[in-house]
Design a protein around this nucleic acid. Structure first.
Lengths: 352, 352
DNA sequence: CTGAAAGCGCTAACAA
DNA sequence: TTGTTAGCGCTTTCAG
């Protein structure tokens, strides 16, 4: 649309130097020891002409595009995980790189097509991302290219992966409760996510429960129960209502904030108050956590850091097949309180 | 990393034709009338060699990159708005285009830098997006390039814009309530968002209230009140508690689901039940809407469609400075009920 | 320090 | 129908 972009030849001509000299100076190389004055002249000419390099041409020549591809199953779709993109973007832009984003929707054919498209565009590397931590098999076309796995694992694919440290998060949840004096009536709501569709649970669930159990048992505390169910609000509500009909929990570890929402609803209905009667701690730290009343203590899924780290690995060429575990920070809010004397003061949910 | 990509010259050689012929056939052009047999031979050679075009080279030659840039203030960051990216991606991939995503964080300097980077990469067009509908001033460097404004308006910038049809949504909210028999005690919670930081409100607020008022007054119904406040859960909670201390609403129009969450909390505390005592309708249709109990009727922000439409406009070169209003669909759930006889049966919130 | 020249892989006049 | 040729804008030897 604009008339014609000014090229490096234009700059060289105006500065009265060779294109070589212009190239060296403009791409900021110092190893040719060009006269200070000449450099100034070139830069000035470039400025006056409004010169901008044509990166396509440069890429063709150098076969580096300064572009990474972020390919995910459905990451852009899911709430909050836009943070992953955000982190990746920050790391990329900080180094003058740019990010091509694509979604496969879990369709291997679409995925193959997308990967090819990226390869045709000569991207420098790939972030292969998943919505929730699980085992994946990246397309084999990626084998010969720099790849970092984000929030997923691939046993027979030689790539670094970046995942949340769910085990440590589980430990942290247990420690937090212990620290508040809880030693009895501690339940895990959601568990390993062992439901018919995922009989052996999901990675996050398994790791969290494992961390919880380790810490508790080494403190001589026994978990009162692990409720295996799906992780949606209605599951939390239903399962907790069911549980409340038989037991009287003092502390709830919810496997995500949505379950905690369901739990709040169930607790309110039987007039148990958080945290006076029941402490609640959760995972994810979604927006929901600070919207609930009382505000929910939650251990954050480090979306931003995952995205950021993945790109940083790509940038620094740390591609060895290592699992990089990203810490999940605790956001302490009002839903966990030191245990009080009498268990069972049946009061209505309080404000705040 | 891989040995060497096979080039078009390789294909031509193996097929025993000229590079020209190969180029024509492989880029799927028909206007040169190449012999059927030759075409077959070329395609076969390409297949056997695993040929893939180098799009960088093609771009350098044709100066089209099949790449669009999606530049936003903070769109990837905000929950649910990942749907915008999703829609844009779908439209782009459907036509073999690819999307470069970037975020400015509202920083004009970062923005300028990013736009330059995109321009240097010769992108074919821009989607300039905002997190919430408002007036923007895109960098002037974009003036000579195809641009579509997404979820924002720019008076003195000649570009098409794609925005949610908030006015129609306001009408729809009012109609829904009227349809359920509500004629009194209807309040708008959130209003135009007229708070100190945005004294004249925000676009969505103004349009919604305007739609609501138009429909109600043409039905001879007067709004009982418009509560101007910020649109966070705690604002909904606080303002409704305050309102409830003096009035007795029969229907609430909440300007977003977060306000509705706050409203639910306030209503529960004074033992008013939704929808028996108070009907609630909201805007956005975020995940929250289906998580609340009872499930919240909400008018959806069409994130996906916005993204999709913006890219479609770019693809079809519909760049005239027109406002394209995207419909906001009603998601009818349990929070709106036909009005019952006696206003004021003070019961506890029911299940479901 | 500077300039000439080759070439990245592809497209598109033009000529044969 | 096919082949020849000239670039797109840039980097990078290699001589001067």
């Amino acid at each position: 649309m604009s008339s014609r972009r000014v090229t490096m030849a234009d700059v060289a001509r105006r500065a009265g130097v060779s294109r070589t000299a212009a190239s060296f100076v403009l791409s900021g190389r110092t190893d040719m020891r060009i006269a200070e004055a000449t450099q100034k002249r070139i830069h000035q000419a470039a400025r006056e002409l409004g010169y901008r390099p044509n990166l396509t041409a440069r890429s063709l020549r150098t076969s580096v595009t300064s572009t990474f591809a972020l390919i995910s199953d459905t990451i852009a779709t899911t709430a909050y995980a836009g943070q992953v993109i955000h982190g990746a973007l920050d790391a990329a832009t900080a180094q003058g790189r740019v990010l091509l984003v694509a979604e496969t929707q879990g369709d291997p054919v679409a995925e193959a097509r997308l990967v090819e498209g990226m390869l045709d565009r000569q991207v420098d590397g790939f972030v292969y991302a998943a919505m929730f931590t699980h085992e994946v098999t990246p397309p084999s076309a990626l084998r010969n290219h720099p790849v970092v796995l984000l929030n997923c694992l691939a046993d027979d694919f030689p790539a670094a992966s970046v995942i949340p440290d769910e085990y440590a998060a589980g430990c942290l949840a247990a420690q937090t409760l212990l620290g508040a004096g809880h030693r009895e009536g501690i339940y895990v709501l959601g568990g390993r996510h062992a439901i018919p569709e995922t009989p052996s649970g999901v990675f996050a669930g398994r790791e969290r429960v494992s961390g919880i159990e380790t810490v508790l048992s080494s403190a001589g505390v026994r978990l009162a129960g692990v409720v295996e169910c799906d992780w949606q609000p209605q599951d939390g509500y239903r399962e907790l209502r069911e549980l409340l009909s038989r037991h009287r929990p003092r502390a709830l570890i919810c496997c995500n904030d949505r379950l905690a929402l369901g739990a709040y609803q169930a607790l309110a209905e039987v007039s148990l108050s958080v945290p006076q009667d029941v402490s609640v701690i959760s995972f994810d730290d979604s927006d929901l956590a600070s919207w609930l009343r009382p505000r929910l203590t939650s251990i954050a899924l480090p979306h931003y850091d995952l995205g950021r780290r993945a790109v940083e690995l790509l940038l620094s060429d740390q591609l060895a097949p290592v699992r990089h575990r990203i810490p999940m920070p605790l956001r302490l809010r009002a839903s966990v309180a030191p245990i009080t004397s009498a268990p069972g003061s049946q009061q209505a949910v309080r404000e705040r």
